[in-house]
């Protein structure tokens, strides 16, 4: 079984994000970038499926700037077999929107013919939560989103989903798109020997133009603002006062 995992290069989750002074977006110049944490979980799951003997090959794909090669190398070091970079822009500030990403991925899927696409449920930069669903739509495949458990058997994926109010288990026929949630697994630390081995794994380059997909943004960012500053708390004298404030001031009771 072949698994395809798309990975996105995003601002590192430890970085304190700053909004650009003109409000046009987030400052990405000289900021540490890493693999989207949900995509790391997706790669980890694919690698575990390969270690269990369920999967035979893992292909990782990243779309964007040349620097996304670092992200692909990380995925290769985690255990993916080969990587494809789709060069879609030279501007680090340009975000390729979900529909364009899904179209590009569908071209790769047509060429690679994987049995399963495992993707992060969303990227932590724009939190769109759309690419996996759009890809399934374009391909006409089944989809299972927000996975916290994946089991593959008899040409089907049995996926436990984290939904509002609990867990839902569904079966989808392969090929399918599965997007993963936080509790699916804990990604491994890559070992030094595997970093060395990853250098020798194949990394192929394509361009969005050659795949005939228009990546021109269709969304316009009107304004980006910093979240409001946290204000100091108050000390209450009694439980009664606390309940009164929760009821009448905070309105949470």
């Amino acid at each position: 079984m072949k698994i395809l995992v798309p990975v996105k290069r995003v601002i590192d989750y430890n970085v304190k994000v700053r909004v650009r002074t003109d409000g046009s977006g987030v400052d990405l110049a000289n900021v540490k970038m890493s693999m989207n944490p949900f995509d790391e979980i997706a790669v980890e799951e694919a690698v575990r499926l390969k270690e269990k003997g369920v999967a035979s090959e893992i292909v990782v794909v990243s779309i964007g700037v040349q620097q996304a090669k670092d992200t692909l190398r990380s995925a290769l070091a985690m255990g993916a077999d080969r990587a494809i970079l789709i060069d879609a822009t030279s501007d680090v500030n340009q975000d390729i929107e979900p529909l364009a990403v899904a179209r590009l991925l569908s071209r790769i899927v047509e060429a690679e013919r994987p049995d399963l696409v495992i993707a992060g449920k969303q990227a932590i930069d724009n939190d769109m939560n759309a690419t996996g669903q759009m890809l399934a739509g374009l391909l006409g495949w089944g989809q299972a989103t927000f996975a916290s458990k994946i089991e593959i058997a008899d040409g089907r994926a049995v996926v436990t989903r984290e939904v509002d109010g609990g867990l839902q288990t569904i079966g989808v026929r392969l090929p399918a798109v599965v997007t993963v949630d936080l509790r699916l697994n804990e990604p491994r630390y890559v070992s030094l020997p595997s970093i060395m081995k990853a250098k020798k794994k194949p990394l192929e380059e394509r361009t969005a133009a050659a795949l005939d997909v228009d990546v021109t943004p269709r969304l316009k960012i009107v304004r980006t603002v910093e979240p409001p500053q946290r204000v100091a708390g108050v000390r209450v004298a009694s439980v009664d006062e606390l309940i009164e404030k929760l009821k009448n001031q905070a309105g949470v009771l």
Binding site: D70, S74, A77, V190, L192, I195, K199
Partner: peptide, 15 residues
């Protein structure tokens, strides 16, 4: 280089 940076990130996270 890219490899040294990758090693640094891994060991940094582990530490």
């Amino acid at each position: 280089n890219e490899t040294q940076e990758q090693v640094r990130e891994t060991v940094q996270a582990f530490a």
